[in-house]
């Protein structure tokens, strides 16, 4: 319990068809990551609104991670570019609000990327802890 009180809280936006299966697979393979990582899934990472991310920071999350579809997105070839734009816009808004943009990270997580996901979470938690 003690480590959870101090561990940074991370909100992950995953995508139902691509990155959420990878996060499931991490659990199936018992690849551990901090329990203060919480996931909300959406159909496509390009659908994430800046206001949701800012809301997470306002309510107390220490970091937000977008587990993006990347080039595997079945909806649009422009997904990577659009998700990048979401991050860019949100970074600008975070700066305006005095929130360190480093608290919002994005990486493409494919449906079998359980290992990279766990690595990202551990690194992000470490970065936020420091």
């Amino acid at each position: 319990m003690e480590k959870n009180k101090t561990a940074p809280k991370i909100l992950v936006f995953s995508t139902e068809k691509i990155s959420d299966p990878a996060i499931d697979l991490a659990g199936l393979l018992k690849k551990h990551y901090p329990s203060t990582v919480y996931t909300i899934n959406v159909p496509c990472s390009s659908a994430i609104k800046s206001r949701w991310i800012l809301h997470a920071f306002e309510k107390g999350f220490d970091g937000v991670f977008i587990a993006a579809d990347g080039t595997d997105c079945s909806y649009s070839e422009t997904c990577t570019e659009r998700t990048g734009e979401v991050v860019q816009r949100t970074h600008d808004l975070m700066k305006e609000k005095g929130i360190d943009p480093a608290k919002l990270k994005m990486a493409a997580i494919c449906s079998v990327c359980s290992e990279p996901f766990v690595k990202h979470m551990k690194n992000f938690v470490n970065a936020l802890s420091n």
Binding site: N4, G27, P34
Partner: peptide, 15 residues
């Protein structure tokens, strides 16, 4: 299960 009990089987209170 996949995103809680199995992913955090190393940390029961956290899970």
């Amino acid at each position: 299960r996949e995103q809680c009990s199995w992913a955090h089987s190393d940390n029961k209170p956290g899970a």
